[in-house]
Write a protein that binds this DNA or RNA. Sequence first.
DNA 1: GCCTTGTGTTTACATCCGTAATCAAAGGGC
DNA 2: GCCCTTTGATTACGGATGTAAACACAAGGC
Lengths: 122, 122
Amino acid sequence: MISISDAEAQVMEVLWQKSPQSTDDIALVLAKTQDWQLATIKTLLNRLLNKGAISAVQDGRRYAYSAVLQRSAWLAEQSTDLIDRVFGGRVAPLVAHFSRQRKLNVADIASLKALIKELERG
Amino acid sequence: MISISDAEAQVMEVLWQKSPQSTDDIALVLAKTQDWQLATIKTLLNRLLNKGAISAVQDGRRYAYSAVLQRSAWLAEQSTDLIDRVFGGRVAPLVAHFSRQRKLNVADIASLKALIKELERG
DNA sequence: GCCTTGTGTTTACATCCGTAATCAAAGGGC
DNA sequence: GCCCTTTGATTACGGATGTAAACACAAGGC
């Protein structure tokens, strides 16, 4: 199970958006949200490479990086982890928490409803 | 915002179950799930004390520890954090994810349905 | 009154993480 | 052919974390 840190996840998001990309491409996208030096991004790319979360193909004098770890796999891990740790493995309490805390908007409720209907249909 | 680590959260869970408790009480409960030396638990209690997540009242030659940080506050933080980081701030995709993984049982679906109904009523 | 035992406090230490500077190599400009 | 620039690789470093040992001190047994 490849596990990635918060900062690394930021980089993965960029590659999940589009792969492959060069360091520069990635830096450009990240500049919108993070205030990182290029060096920092290089470090993160290297750590991700070392743990096999991304791959690199040489392209002239630079590399083209691609996501290897799937976003869906990461989602699954993160979600299951939280739900297990915090909500005893069940989803409803989390939703309940949000409904109480944070106001689900109309669209959220609609999606949930649709989902439930689908689930009941089997 | 008090932030606690995974290991610290284990200790908090014990105190959320029941407060106050002595180090020994806590160790007894933790022994069921963790393989920690007493010294480790003492360290965690101290770190929690230092960050104000728990309080201690002297009781003879030992302390009685109580949770200060509320479990609900911790839940809120953890949930919001995950949902923001991973699901763009919306709950439905998380539920959808779980439904796809078939992690929702009949009871879950029933609770969700009840919740939705409640939400729609306002 | 001394020694053991229990209990909290202090110190330790390896690893991970965020953040980055520095180094090295390879190409392009002149 | 040599030097600057680009780009990846190596090294750095402080703080958090997991895990725990060492220390200090008080209280009870003998």
